[in-house]
Design a protein around this nucleic acid. Structure first.
Lengths: 282, 282
DNA sequence: AGCTCTTATGAATCATTGA
DNA sequence: GTCAATGATTCATAAGAGC
């Protein structure tokens, strides 16, 4: 089966209406503001951000499968010396809309923008808010495991008495089996803090979004052949990653110029007709 | 001038009433988290947390100097598979109370609690919310500069960067300029992400947060001789750090047992009388 | 003193069982 | 039904012991 990758030019609030319920396994996006592209959507003020977002997230909720995930990469800006509250207000509003706020991952930007201000340090992190439709959702934890620290080597040589004691107190049966599992382990599950560098490519767009970020969430929350949506596709980083990982994807982007870039970099076909579009996702 | 360190046994909501307005330069604390430490604090329900907190933060607002800072280390728990919203509701409520939400620092816990669950990874971060009374506040950025590269290796308690800065300012022209240049080349300002491990020593009490955390904020937001308040002092980590950094401090702790530990570990005198207490702070 | 190795434990969360 | 108690799961760190 070949992988489908498509980009649609338009506002996701409108364009998603043509998609069926429960069409996507994952929605991962970095909406305007993290991107500073809000002006392309008509210059939404921070005070109006929640109001602007909700009709769109309502469509996200509809087109996402019950086992799917919605990952929202966002960070509030500083206004008049203060962190603005529109992001945390958005969390509350999305919960009211029916989303479950399952987790908040932190993207630690190892090489963040330089700068110096009298009242704050450089901003080196962004939120990756994880929303779901239900408490049971798809999560492939093994796909994102990381090598254990060096301490594991010493651990393998001889098992500490502590392990035995703790094990004793809790179980009693199945003693040997679990110890064996432990000793064979070289990989560990990650935490909810992602250490990724920003990409500093010389592209024509302002994509602060490194491909490693959608990569991580796509592997974690989808299988091959699943459908991924990026409703604020920008230059198509998410689509490109999805295609390389063998996932079908749809991107929606309001700016024709970005759509053009996305089609070039991500080998993306542009959906032209509703019939075509529906056919891909159906 | 000698450094004063005191601990008061009681509920900060009551005990702070005896302090004058604008008494403290920094309030740094890690309050009891909702439903945690039930055996010690009685376990405030998440739904009641904001309501429980506000009368106390109102006193904080009163006793903090206009140029002071309030650093709140907190993290919401998971309840029924979801992150609870009481912390972000608290942010909104504190703003309404008159605080400025100046910044949110992230404490990345390098050694977080182990565990495996079907719907989430290990929680490796906590919020350090920075509130102020005004847009102009005291911030000594040079005191927390770190060697170029990773600043995880910088154990701030052992490095005397404070001394370097003070020496620089005292000597003035020639030599001071050299030091300034040297610092500019080899030291960097940190970001708003702090990489610290929790302390796992064999103490008689559970250290809520590592001493490096209050250390960092006390250096950053106070000068020597300033006054630091920890209204949920616990075993007195903040007080101990403040004393070692040459800052006066007051801790308030509701549990007599913790007060006892604090007095021992932090060389703390217990305030007994109102007159005494006022005298120290006045 | 400066290594290596050992050991305890930390603001945890979920599934299951029993009242 | 709900709610509380218990068991299962798991990793990185620093203090301390040993050489």
């Amino acid at each position: 089966m070949t992988v489908k990758t498509g980009i649609i030019q338009g506002d996701c609030a409108e364009m998603l209406k043509t998609f069926d319920n429960n069409s996507f396994d994952l929605i991962v996006t970095s909406p305007p503001y993290a991107d500073r592209r809000i002006h392309t959507y008509g210059g939404v003020k921070p005070e109006q951000y929640v109001e602007w977002f909700l009709p769109r997230s309502e469509e996200f909720l509809r087109v996402l499968k019950p086992t799917g995930s919605f990952v929202l990469n966002i960070k509030e800006k500083v206004e008049n010396g203060e962190r603005h509250t529109y992001v945390i207000e958005l969390i509350l509003a999305l919960k009211k809309q029916g989303w479950l706020w399952t987790e908040e991952y932190i993207w630690h930007k190892k090489n963040c923008y330089p700068g110096k201000w009298p009242n704050r340090f450089r901003d080196a992190w962004e939120r990756c808010l994880h929303f779901t439709k239900s408490r049971k959702f798809k999560m492939n934890q093994e796909t994102v495991m990381v090598p254990m620290g060096d301490w594991a080597g010493a651990r393998l040589k001889s098992l500490g008495k502590n392990d035995v004691v703790r094990y004793d107190s809790q179980v009693g049966s199945g003693f040997g089996k679990n110890i064996a599992n432990w000793m064979e382990r070289t990989m560990a599950y990650p935490t909810n803090v992602l250490h990724l560098a920003t990409e500093c490519g010389n592209k024509n767009h302002s994509a602060a979004f490194p491909s490693a970020l959608p990569d991580w969430f796509i592997r974690l929350f989808t299988d091959e052949g699943d459908w991924v949506l990026d409703p604020f596709a920008g230059s198509g980083t998410t689509l490109d990653v999805a295609r390389r990982l063998g996932r079908n994807s749809v991107g929606i982007e309001i700016l024709p110029d970005y759509c053009e870039i996305a089609r070039q970099t991500a080998n993306v076909e542009q959906f032209q007709l509703l019939e075509e579009r529906r056919a891909y996702v159906g």
